[in-house]
Design a protein around this nucleic acid. Structure first.
Lengths: 185, 185
DNA sequence: GTTGATTGTCAACAGGTGTTGGCCTACAGT
DNA sequence: ACTGTAGGCCAACACCTGTTGACAATCAAC
């Protein structure tokens, strides 16, 4: 009885996040995760039941948009970009979701929940227009996921080379427009 | 001797494209591809040597930007968006690349080649500014890949519901700005 | 000090993977 | 009619996957 169960559980969880983020769902094997955590594969099963459930636990995620509550309206675009970039770099969670959401249906569903369920309401509150919020949220998600893809997954050299401020000055106006522009549909 | 070898080869190839696009690299097994093509798995090996090489053949792709040669400068943004959307829908090739490029290093490399090697030169020619072309190409790639991701892979409902014209009117100005806007860095 | 529960290890399972070699089978050339 | 060649199929290989159950080690409670 070396450690307490919650300790090992969280060791496994962080090893799992790393592997899922680096390799995607299929290639992140339970055996490799267990090896990283220096633990027997059977422990993973004991504590999480199955690979699917382990993944569900590893992909738990909160975009924390509440931090943007009191940003002046005309700076919302830049603030969003900065916030997203920091979420990308803060933990592996977003990379886990993106890497796995593309082959794993459960992850895709979780992704839809997060971006529709967390981003859209926040946008509705910030803009005061619940009607167009889902579309705006989807456009912003697409742009920010695209940048994450290019920078952290596909690693396009120009995008990797850019500083946070470069990215903010390119993307800020785009997001600002997706947020407030008057639009049909 | 039912068919000629080039026939079966192309039957396998199109089955492979479908599977890679739908399932990603790992889950698209040679056995499932062979089953789709109503052919023995060993044939796939005989004709393509390995799964990796089969994938390389299936991911051959040309973005065909030459079609945009004589578009008036102020309509380039919309034209790009329309062109990209049609490329997404024309064949599975782009979806193959995106689905697999995220777990398969070879596909990621191919993706970089395509977007840096095909898009950037075209932009340099269209704008007459070879200096900033790589960054502009990368920003446009990120935005258009993000939309493809949201619409065809993750299937965000608002993005799926939008018409081509809706998407053009949202994305056109963005791409236009990434193309021609004066910028540092 | 014994009991009971909790943490960890080991070996094996059933099934799926890419890949290989041998064996048919049908055709073309002579 | 016979032979050579090229397309196609089958069975098997070695390996890896998630998952399971039985067994050992360690601690807490009484």
């Amino acid at each position: 009885m070396r450690r307490t169960s919650t300790e090992t559980k969280s060791i496994i969880l962080s090893a799992a996040r790393e592997r899922f983020a680096a390799d995607g769902y299929e290639r992140a094997t339970i055996r490799s995760i267990a090896a990283d955590a220096k633990i027997d594969p059977a422990m993973v099963m004991r504590y999480f039941g199955s690979k699917e459930k382990l993944f569900a636990a590893a992909a738990e995620f909160d975009l924390r948009f509440d931090a943007l509550a009191d940003v002046p309206r005309e700076q919302l675009g830049s603030a969003f970009v900065r916030h997203f970039l920091r979420q990308w770099e803060a933990g592996e969670a977003l990379q886990v979701l993106l890497r796995t959401g593309i082959t794993n249906d459960g992850a895709a569903e979780r992704m839809r929940e997060i971006f529709a369920g967390q981003l859209a309401p926040r946008i509705a509150a910030l803009t005061g227009d619940p009607q167009t919020a889902p579309v705006r949220a989807a456009m912003i998600s697409a742009q920010m996921l695209g940048i994450g893809l290019a920078r952290y997954i596909l690693q396009f050299p120009p995008v990797v080379a850019m500083s946070e401020e470069d990215l903010v000055s390119w993307l800020g106006p785009t997001i600002q427009r997706y947020l407030i522009e008057e639009r049909p549909s």
